[in-house]
Design a protein around this nucleic acid. Structure first.
Lengths: 302, 302
DNA sequence: ATGAAAGCGCTAACAG
DNA sequence: CTGTTAGCGCTTTCAT
């Protein structure tokens, strides 16, 4: 095939060059769950930056599985990616591949964490995140301002960094705004039908508003409300996470936290390229601010 | 970095092996627009098949741009991907990289087209598609059965294969079911705000139902209807394309054509691996059937 | 059986 | 400044 390619003109054989130069012009990207539209816009943002610089994307999916993630990480160093963009997975104990990644540091493989980081050691790697704590705090305040006193929250995997921070924001919000916070519900696998029932049961609890911490959870809350005849926002107010066009068209349109996802992608790509180019300034922790997009799913009580 | 990696244990340097074996264990995937959730599920399906066989994904985005696609195709042969999964882009004249791809055939680079193919030569490459013609035909029948007589259609880039076929299905449907079909509207860039106005204007036309040929178009139709006070389905019925969870939660829930996207991904991945393994049976054109998911956006007239 | 050596296609260093 | 050659890290072949 090599020969033919050459006969047909143009192409160099990149791999021989790689052997010599140790440079692949490839960035490894690990996404926990590709079905989450969040990562769509992120990838789009990343590509915007990489393409003009001739870098390509080696895409992989951890499925929130630490071992699978490790496999992909290993493959990436074998492939010699010039850098890695990682949104890390966490196991039931909340631990991930932090230790494994430390080896990457010593071998000089640049890694930028995005969306999520390792709580034990948040500054050890470059990272691009949003302020999840603050985001939820602003939700709780919003709810309080609208007269809500009893609120609930549904997490999608509390072992995951973003979820942890959102929980902290919730707890702090409830304390400082003096709301009655219900015990949260944690859904580990949102694609599991059985878990959907739990959401329905949870909604029956004594509260006027619920915070849905991911796009999938928001969907399930709406679906359940519909089935059970719970009127949003009359009977129950809801605030979701991860804005998409569709949220505007829901019945009723859903109030959500919007993250600057595409920007985060661009920032992550820019940062990893800087590191590849030899930038050895101290670790950067870029924190974007998320905004509350107010629509019609929160009732103004009294 | 090589040395360090070795000191730290395990890893082989994949690129040297590649030089020798001419095998990268990498599949190039070209997606026209990553922001379309359609491709999310497709990628997910593909990865399901590739991971256990140790193949990795080199992901790229053509942005519906033939030249950009060509650049990526070139990079892929340079990188020595073992095969390519392509959903081809088309320029204003409706032509794409067919000629360029013919070179891939002679150099033995396996290519599987998905979602879209080249009309001039539909059987030249392996392909995984749905029957777009039939899908729209079934929409038109559905509309007719519900008493609709005047219908419209909004295309998202009529130069694109899927759109062409959907148009053909529309025309044929209107003829055989004796409906009055309005001139269709074609939106070239759905991300362009100005184009959204065109959708609104089109909706004012004299029709009882409109067919939205992509997920983005459906969204814009709903948004416009909302702004202009057009009641769906009272004043206007709509049938969309590309089902997602969210469609169920729209106001009203939208009737759509659902494609077996994840299956298509698995089929495409399986086929490309077969080719890589030396399967030289005649070109395969796998055509999946799409199904109409009936919800609440179509009015039953009388 | 095990071990040494050639060679994959390029780049970079070196010699002319 | 241009042309030649060594060598990147593996696999495969060939000799021991």
């Amino acid at each position: 095939m090599r020969e033919k390619a050459k006969e047909l003109g143009y192409m160099v054989f990149h791999n021989a060059r790689v052997l010599r130069t140790q440079k692949t012009f490839t960035i490894g990207i690990i996404v926990p769950d590709i079905r989450n539209p969040f990562f769509l816009d992120f990838l789009h943002g990343v590509e915007r930056i990489l393409f003009p610089r001739k870098y390509k994307i080696l895409l992989s999916m951890s499925d929130e599985n630490v071992e699978k993630e490790k496999q992909y990480l290993r493959w990436m160093v074998e492939h010699g990616t010039d850098g890695i963009l990682l949104s890390p997975a966490f196991d039931e104990n909340g631990s991930g591949n932090l230790n494994f990644l430390r080896k990457f540091k010593v071998m000089g493989m640049p890694v930028v964490l995005y969306d999520r980081l390792y709580e034990e050691s948040p500054k050890e790697f470059d990272s691009i995140t949003i302020d999840n704590f603050d985001a939820v705090l602003s939700i709780v305040k919003h709810l309080k301002d609208r007269g809500h006193r009893r609120v609930g929250m549904i997490l999608a995997g509390r072992r995951i960094y973003t979820m942890k921070k959102r929980l902290e924001g919730y707890l702090e919000g409830c304390r400082s705004y003096e709301l009655e916070c219900r015990e949260i519900l944690d859904i580990n696998n949102i694609f599991d039908q059985k878990e959907h029932e739990k959401i329905c049961d949870y909604l029956k609890g004594n509260m006027t508003a619920v915070i849905a911490t991911s796009h999938f959870v928001t969907n399930e809350v709406y679906k359940c409300a519909k089935r059970r005849g719970i009127e949003i926002p009359e009977d129950l107010s809801v605030v979701g996470f991860d804005d998409m066009d569709e949220n505007e068209l829901f019945d009723p349109p859903v109030t959500v936290i919007r993250q600057p996802v595409s920007l985060m992608g661009k920032a992550a790509a820019t940062l990893i390229l800087d590191r590849i180019d030899g930038d050895d300034s101290p670790t950067q922790s870029v924190v974007f601010k998320a905004e509350l997009v107010e629509r019609k799913s929160v009732k103004h009580i009294r």
